Simulated scan of single mutants.
Amino acid sequence: MKILTHGFGQASGLVAIYIEHMPPMLEYKNLELVQPLSIGETEMISLASGNGWRKIFNVYAKILGQLKHRDHNFTNYGSWQAYREQCLLQSHSQEALLFSPPKLDNPKYRFHIIAGRTYAKKLLRDHIFTNSLVWLDTEFAVDKTHNLVVCPFLDYRQLSNIKINKLCDILHSLD
């Protein structure tokens, strides 16, 4: 069975973050492609799906803000909040939030981030896609061959500002 890449944002770009579950909304139940969000859609998803989704979008924008990658358009925005509202996962962004396993043999993103150790271990068990993953500690792992990083889930308690800094340092080391 072929698994289609599906999620929010761009079909190729700088960063793809992979999470296990999509928002529990009818609008996305049959999502089979990478679809850019429209202005206000992150807020609509957060209102309809709960505080957890607001945290996911906030932490994603904070990662991009802290990363300050030279090839990312984040610098066109004054803050991570402005980026979240005006660009995150939209048609003019450079990132994706994907709900399908990474396809590392056909990379469309420079950096791949699997959010959540449990999800990463499930992917490794079910979809053997890398054999060069090295655990740096109990929360972070890296595969330098594929520019893949495993980090804590996109939640303030799990991926604090200190851990966002660590994630960004790892990503810069892969560049």
Rank of each mutant, 00 (worst) to 15 (best):
I162Y: 04
D143I: 02
D137I: 11
M44S: 14
P36G: 09
S160Q: 02
Q94P: 00
C168Y: 05
S38A: 14
R70G: 00
I63S: 06
P102M: 09
L133S: 03
S49Q: 13
F74Y: 09
G50W: 13
A96N: 08
T42I: 11
I3H: 12
D71V: 00
I19T: 14
L98G: 03
Q86I: 01
D169Q: 15
F99T: 04
D105N: 15
N51I: 13
H21E: 14
T42F: 02
F57D: 03
G7W: 00
A115K: 04
E27A: 15
A11N: 14
Y119N: 09
R110N: 02
L123W: 12
N30G: 02
G7T: 03
H21Q: 15
D71H: 05
K68R: 10
Y77H: 09
L154A: 01
I17N: 01
Q90T: 04
H21T: 07
L14V: 12
Q35A: 07
I56V: 15
K2R: 13
G13H: 11
Y18E: 04
G13K: 13
V134A: 12
Q10A: 11
G116F: 08
A120M: 05
R54Q: 14
A61S: 14
N165L: 12
I128A: 13
L171G: 01
P152G: 06
M44T: 13
S100Y: 08
A141C: 05
L26N: 13
F8Y: 03
L33V: 13
L31W: 06
A16L: 05
A61V: 04
L37H: 11
K122Y: 11
V150K: 05
G52F: 15
G65L: 00
G40Q: 09
L88V: 03
L136V: 09
F111E: 10
H146Q: 10
E20V: 00
E85F: 02
A115W: 08
T138L: 09
P107Y: 08
G40V: 12
D71S: 12
G116C: 06
L123V: 13
E43R: 06
Y109E: 07
Y28S: 00
I19S: 10
F99V: 05
I56P: 00
M25A: 07
M1Y: 13
S91M: 13
S46T: 07
G65T: 00
A115V: 10
A115M: 08
P107A: 11
P102K: 06
T145M: 12
T42S: 06
L4E: 15
N73C: 08
H112G: 03
R84G: 01
L159A: 02
C168L: 03
L159N: 01
Y119M: 11
I113A: 13
L171S: 01
